[in-house]
Amino acid sequence: MSLISCKEISKIYKMGEVKIKALNNISLEISKSQFISFIGPSGSGKTTMLNLFGVLDKPTSGILKVIDTDISKLNYVERAKFRGEHLGFIFQNFNLIPVLTVFENVEYPLIMVKSIPPKERKEKVLSLLDEVGMLDQKDKLINQISGGQKQRAAIARALTTDPKIVLADEPTANLDHKSAFKVMSLMRKLSHEIGTTFIFSTHDPKIVQEVDIIYTIEDGVLVNREKRSKK
């Protein structure tokens, strides 16, 4: 069963009178529990692709179904509800809330997006923090932890709502190589352990060694699909 189904989708941005074709006629299917990477140079359309999969944007043409839902038919609030229900996000700049502790940041989606009883919420957050190796940092504020730790906290936050898909736009761009590999290994491990599909974008080919499928995008066109054998 496909989690994401794209049929000839294109995305055109208007910059004044100029039209920029960010994605051109892309068709693909993404299944459950996969660890997928979109690679390509800056401006190739990776982020646009992830924005569409993340229901943050709508295609200009074509049909995009995310978890059997045609996202073009959703309004602003419905899209927000959909994202909260089914998707998780990891950002390049982490975007953790600085006034909250690590624990509270991970807990945030469970409070603001889903209503879960406090006891169950606490157990869930602690278990996730344990998974990402951040349990001992749980009471620290965001400015008291390192970049790699921030991204691990962000991964835990993305997973708290049990999303079917986690989208990560350049999740290692602000990390050193060692931390980047650690984060990638963690995401892959979680993807296979809990059955969540991870889709991330990167322009760094070195860190995509562990992915299941690599999509290469250039100038808004899908130029290659490379399936890797699972280790």
């Binding site: 609030v77 927000a80 994202r83 909260g84 229900e85 996000f89 809330i97 603001m112 936050r157």
Partner: peptide, 10 residues
Amino acid sequence: GAISAMGTLP
């Protein structure tokens, strides 16, 4: 933008 992306309602 981040909390909105995560599904926080307006």
